[in-house]
C-alpha cells in the first residue's frame, strides 16, 4: 500500500494515535477524560510493544498501567469528585514558558538525533527475547539483585501509603 509495508503502516498509525492521545491528556479539561486518553495512549504503546516483539511486556504493560495504575487514578478522581472543570488555569506566561521550554527540549533532543546513523530494527534474532522464558532467565540471573531489592521498594511504598492513608486513631 503506497509503497509501505503493513508494519510501517501500523507503526505510523499507532504513533500518530499515541501522540494524539498524549496531547489530549495534556489539553483535556476534565481529569476523567485525561485518564481515558492516557489509557488509550497506553494501549497504543502496548501496540508498539507488540510490534517490537515484546508480547509479554505488552500484556504486563496493560495489566499494570491500564489495569491497576490508571484505575487507581480514576478511583481517586471519582472519590474526590473532580467532575467540574474547576481547575484554575495557569497564567498565560507560565503556559508559554512551559511551551517554550518543552519546545526547546524537543529541539535539542531531536537535533541530537540528526547525526545518528539509521539503524534499522529487525526481528531476526530478536523474536525470542521478549518471551516469558527468556525474560525470566535474565531477570532471575543477571537482574536478581534489583529484583530482590525491588521488594524493599514496594514494601516501603506500601507502608508509606498505608501510613498516610489510614486515619489516626487519636
Amino acid at each position: 500500500m503506497l509503497g509501505y509495508t503493513i508494519t510501517q503502516w501500523l507503526f505510523g498509525i499507532l504513533s500518530f494515535l499515541a501522540i494524539m492521545f498524549a496531547l489530549m491528556v495534556v489539553f483535556s479539561r476534565n481529569p476523567v477524560n485525561s485518564v481515558l486518553y492516557l489509557v488509550m495512549t497506553f494501549f497504543c504503546i502496548a501496540g508498539h510493544y507488540l510490534l517490537l516483539n515484546a508480547q509479554f511486556l505488552a500484556v504486563v504493560h496493560i495489566v499494570v498501567y491500564a489495569g491497576a495504575i490508571m484505575v487507581l487514578f480514576l478511583f481517586v478522581i471519582m472519590l474526590m469528585d473532580l467532575n467540574q472543570d474547576s481547575e484554575p488555569q495557569r497564567t498565560m506566561v507560565t503556559k508559554i514558558i512551559a511551551g517554550v521550554a518543552g519546545g526547546l527540549m524537543l529541539f535539542v533532543l531531536v537535533g541530537s538525533l540528526k547525526g545518528t546513523e539509521q539503524l534499522n530494527l529487525s526481528s531476526y534474532g530478536s523474536s525470542q527475547i521478549g518471551t516469558v522464558k527468556n525474560l525470566g532467565k535474565v531477570l532471575f540471573s543477571e537482574f536478581l539483585f534489583p529484583f530482590e531489592i525491588a521488594s524493599v521498594l514496594l514494601l516501603a511504598a506500601m507502608v508509606g501509603a498505608i501510613m498516610i492513608g489510614k486515619k489516626d486513631i487519636k
Binding site: P146, I149, A150, V152, L153, A156, V159, G160, M163, I164
Partner: peptide
C-alpha cells in the same frame, strides 16, 4: 555498578522520604 541499581536505589531512597515529608497528616 549498574544503572538498574542506581535507579532503584534512588527510588528506594526517595519514596519513603516522600511519605515522611508528608507525614504530618
Amino acid at each position: 555498578t549498574n544503572m538498574t541499581t542506581l535507579f532503584l536505589g534512588i527510588e528506594i531512597m526517595s519514596i519513603p522520604l516522600y511519605v515522611l515529608a508528608a507525614s504530618q497528616k
